[in-house]
């Protein structure tokens, strides 16, 4: 009961501050409709927000859980949300076995990626090459994955993307998209992942 009274006093104290002199956090639903969670804590306790528009107001050592709404968020955070950068996007480009030659379909999908890059402010591109598990997993695949990434970088630079905005890495067969045993010819693992942000 004492805890409840303390919370009530805190709520009244915060509600009484009509000039909004408190801090507040509101959990939003993700773009994919998934809701994450945020743990809010101070010397007065801890609140876990795990539902869309769940909120916590804090001031001094008080902390009060509540809820907000899309309308309130739009009003209080409209400018802030309007300034959010575009979401990063990720693409896979596939390669012929044992080579740095793109598959025909992947060559064509480059156009869509270029269009995405073109519409972003100050775009950055991260190019990460991978291989399947064919061949000795070690140096050869590291080299091949890097080579694939370099081929993609060269294509992008030729199409006008500044080299300085592109970073390139090779991961060999360490990060398989489709887990396989050694020496498995898996087209979906022979890839370059292009992240555009």
């Amino acid at each position: 009961m004492r805890v409840r009274i303390a919370a009530l006093i805190a709520a009244v104290a915060i509600a009484g501050c009509s000039n909004l002199r408190h801090d507040e956090v509101i959990l939003l639903p993700g773009k994919d409709k998934k809701v994450g969670s945020v743990v809010v804590s101070n010397s007065g306790g801890e609140v876990v927000l795990d539902k869309a528009y769940a909120s916590a107001k804090t001031k001094g050592s008080t902390i009060v859980a509540g809820s907000s709404s899309p309308e309130e968020v739009g009003k209080a955070f409209g400018d802030t949300l309007a300034a959010q950068p575009p979401r990063p996007a990720s693409y896979q480009i596939y390669f012929e076995t044992g080579s740095d030659r793109l598959t025909g379909e992947s060559s064509r999908s480059i156009e869509g990626i270029l269009a995405d890059i073109a519409k972003r402010p100050s775009p950055e591109v991260v190019v990460i090459g991978h291989t399947d598990t064919v061949g000795r997993a070690g140096i050869r695949n590291d080299e091949l994955s890097r080579q694939r990434a370099e081929v993609v970088r060269t294509m992008l630079v030729k199409r006008g993307i500044p080299a300085a905005s592109i970073s390139v890495e090779g991961r060999g067969s360490r990060e398989l998209l489709v887990p396989t045993a050694d020496n498995v010819d898996e087209p979906r693992n022979r890839r370059v992942e292009i992240t555009v942000r």
């Binding site: 801090d23 956090v25 509101i26 993700g30 101070n42 804090t58 902390i63």
Partner: peptide, 21 residues
């Protein structure tokens, strides 16, 4: 984590907004 003058927020995922006065 995001600190405000009266709390510390630990993010376990995705999206949220914060106001500090």
């Amino acid at each position: 984590t995001v600190r405000t003058p009266s709390a510390i927020l630990g993010a376990r995922g995705t999206e949220f907004v914060v106001r500090a006065d």
